[in-house]
Amino acid sequence: MHVVPLPALADNYIWVLHDDDGQAIVVDPGDAQPVEAALTQRQLQLRAILLTHHHHDHIGGVAALLAKHEVPVYAPHDERIIQATHRVSDGNVVELVSPAARFEVIEVPGHTTTHIAYTGEGILLCGDTLFSMGCGRLFEGTPAQMLASLDRLAALPGNTLVCCAHEYTAANGRFAQTIEPTNTALAARRQEVAALRANDKPSLPVALATEQATNPFLRTDNDAVIAWSQRQGVAGDRVARFAALRANKDVFTG
């Protein structure tokens, strides 16, 4: 399976997955135009659309795509996503014949209450739940929900390719460095990202193992993160540590 990030809108990535025969899946198409351009340029046939949550920058292009392509649309149980043809929930499996692909659905509330992720084919399609060296804002869910969701994603195999929906990596890395200034894996990842972005290349996808080594939101039980939390006056509870991380990231301007 070929994994292609399509830049869209301000800083989104729409993910296109396709096989060698040109059969394609599109994930979170917030804009139809870059999808149509990629289908034409790469000589692909759209066969399915996967959606992770209801925000417009993830579903805004669905109606225009359906006007040209008669394909199934997989989405969470959320009435705000009106174009869905197949509603899926935790533990459901999306199995496609063309392209041959199988994805398990994981419910990951936090960013929104109905957010889902898809994992399979060595890929994690996580929408706005997990970002490289970061995580999504808590618009509808609680810190406890988001931490539980991230714990589930972090438990996937380390070689899983994480396909996030935004190019936030450089900014996330600057924040992560303030939490773990002596983390050598983090420093190396930041250098890698700087080189990629300087050449206008995506920082994604990224191996989950890299995130486990560099992402403070996956490292709430790490000694350095615990020490940082204690300096913030937060003791003990890992949910409180996570909440402190998220609150500090919300106001971070570095």
Results as ranks from 00 to 15, higher is better:
Pro205Cys: 04
Leu6Val: 12
Asp19His: 07
His58Tyr: 07
Ala63Ser: 08
Gln177Ser: 11
Phe103Trp: 03
Ala100Ile: 01
Ile226Trp: 15
Gly158Arg: 07
Leu50Phe: 01
Glu140Phe: 10
Asp19Leu: 03
Thr178Val: 11
Ala171Asn: 08
Ala213Glu: 14
Gln145Ala: 12
Ala24Asp: 03
Arg190Trp: 04
Thr210Asn: 15
Leu39Asp: 12
Ala117Asp: 00
Gly134Gln: 09
Val27Cys: 09
Leu218Ala: 03
Ile59Ala: 08
Glu70Gln: 12
Ala176Val: 07
Ala117His: 00
Leu125Lys: 01
Ala148Ser: 12
Tyr13Asn: 12
Ala188Glu: 06
His86Lys: 13
Asp31Cys: 09
Leu17Lys: 06
Arg152Gln: 02
Gln230Met: 09
Leu245Ile: 11
Gln191His: 13
Arg189Ser: 07
Cys135Glu: 01
Gln23Asn: 15
Pro205Glu: 12
Val108Lys: 00
Leu66Met: 09
Gly110His: 01
Leu153Ile: 02
Met133Leu: 14
Gln83Met: 12
Gly136Lys: 03
Gly22Thr: 05
Ala235Leu: 14
Val26Gly: 02
Arg241Phe: 08
Thr220Cys: 13
Phe131Asn: 02
Thr182Ile: 07
Leu204Ala: 13
Gln230Val: 05
Arg137Phe: 12
Ala154Thr: 02
Ala37His: 11
Ala84Gln: 09
Val193Pro: 03
His86Thr: 11
Leu208Trp: 11
Glu107Phe: 02
Ser149Gln: 01
Ala195Thr: 09
Thr220Gly: 14
Gln83Glu: 10
His115Trp: 06
Pro29His: 13
Met1Glu: 05
Ala144Gly: 09
Ser149Val: 00
Asp128Asn: 15
Ser203Arg: 15
Val16Glu: 13
Gly61Cys: 06
Arg190Ala: 14
Val97Asn: 07
Arg190Tyr: 10
Ala8Asp: 09
Thr129Leu: 03
Ala207Pro: 01
Phe242Trp: 10
Gly91Tyr: 01
Ala38Ile: 05
Pro7Thr: 09
Gly61Phe: 02
Glu192Gln: 11
His56Gly: 01
Glu167Gln: 12
Tyr13Ser: 08
Val162Lys: 00
Leu130Gln: 05
His111Gly: 00
Asn215Phe: 10
Val234Arg: 08
Asp151Val: 10
Asn248Met: 15
Asn248His: 12
Val105Thr: 06
Leu161Thr: 04
Pro181Ser: 13
Ile82Met: 06
Ala227Val: 04
Glu211Val: 00
Ile59Trp: 02
Ser203Trp: 14
Ile49Gln: 13
Asp21Leu: 03
Glu79His: 06
Asp237Ile: 07
Asp128Phe: 02
Arg137Gln: 15
Ala247Val: 04
Arg189Ile: 01
Pro216Met: 11
Ile226Asp: 05
Asn172Leu: 06
Asp21Tyr: 02
Leu65His: 05
Cys135Pro: 02
Glu36Asp: 14
Pro29Leu: 14
His86Ala: 08
Val27Gln: 04
Asp57Val: 00
Val251Ser: 11
Phe103Glu: 00
His86Trp: 04
Asp31Gln: 15
Arg241Cys: 08
Glu104Ala: 04
Thr169Leu: 05
Pro29Thr: 15
Asp19Thr: 01
His58Glu: 06
Leu153Glu: 01
Thr40Pro: 03
Tyr13Trp: 06
Thr169Tyr: 07
Asp237Tyr: 11
Thr119Leu: 04
Ser203Lys: 09
Asn12Trp: 01
